[in-house]
């Protein structure tokens, strides 16, 4: 059987940060084919169930396959009068098990995932990758973001960070990534999860950039 041995269409960094009362996840919409900027509108911040944000980098088809796994899980819940049963924390663990089992079959889903959400006051942000590595933290970043953006997120994080501040932190970090990571596009989405507002994923938008810093004056 042919298995995923290397990613084909890839998405680059996903960033996530907690704030007071919620979590926020950001990614751009580029699907790269090697170094070719192939697809310009791949949505890599998605919703799973009522409470959970999923951001994925790595192979885009594997990401979509993962979303189907989650959807199948959620469809098993047929109760009509109870709220959907899976919390972000539970989905994170479920995904960690799927990714670990797939890697153990040498048939990995080639992704690094950011899982975030709020349920019953429990603000959750976590990470899962193609080897099954998983953890939760106040900030999370994948791909080049883990080198370039994660230190920025860690520095900016406070447990009383407001939603507006968190948005600024993510936008600034995404801007830095756009300047430095060649597999980015200036077209990003930010997803927010709060107890009151549920899940809200923005339409793609552009960040203001300033390239004068790179122009050499003679």
């Amino acid at each position: 059987m042919q298995r995923t041995q290397q990613p084909i269409v890839t998405g680059t960094s996903v960033l996530g940060i907690k704030f007071d009362g919620g979590v926020m996840v950001a990614a751009d919409t580029l699907g790269s084919y090697g170094s070719l900027a192939r697809f310009r509108d791949l949505r890599r911040v998605r919703q799973a169930g009522e409470y959970t944000l999923l951001g994925g980098s790595g192979d885009y088809m594997d990401f979509e396959a993962m979303l189907e796994y989650v959807d199948e899980l959620l469809l098993e819940d047929t109760t009509l009068d109870a709220p959907p049963s899976y919390t972000p924390r539970e989905l994170h663990q479920y995904l960690a098990r799927i990714y670990y089992n797939k890697r153990s079959e040498f048939d990995p889903l080639w992704n690094q995932l950011v899982v975030g959400g709020v349920r019953d006051g429990d603000v959750f942000l976590g990470y899962v990758d193609l080897q099954g590595t998983h953890y939760e933290d106040e900030t999370v970043a994948t791909g080049y973001g883990s080198y370039i953006a994660r230190p920025l997120l860690r520095e900016a994080y406070r447990d009383d960070l407001t939603e507006a501040e968190a948005r600024k932190v993510l936008e600034d970090a995404m801007r830095v990534l756009f300047y430095r990571d060649a597999r980015t596009i200036n077209r990003i989405q930010i997803g927010v999860a709060t107890e009151a507002g549920g899940i809200d994923i923005s339409e793609p938008f552009e960040l203001e950039t300033d390239w004068t810093v790179g122009i050499r004056k003679h």
Binding site: I8, T10, T12, S13, S57, G143, Y144, D181
Partner: peptide, 25 residues
């Protein structure tokens, strides 16, 4: 930069040379 960390995830490695394409990763 470790390719294990980013290679497939963000495209080709820093260290790759020559023509790139789907195989670049």
């Amino acid at each position: 930069v470790s390719s294990q960390m980013h290679s497939g995830l963000s495209g080709p490695s820093l260290g790759s040379h020559g023509p790139s394409g789907p195989m670049a990763a």
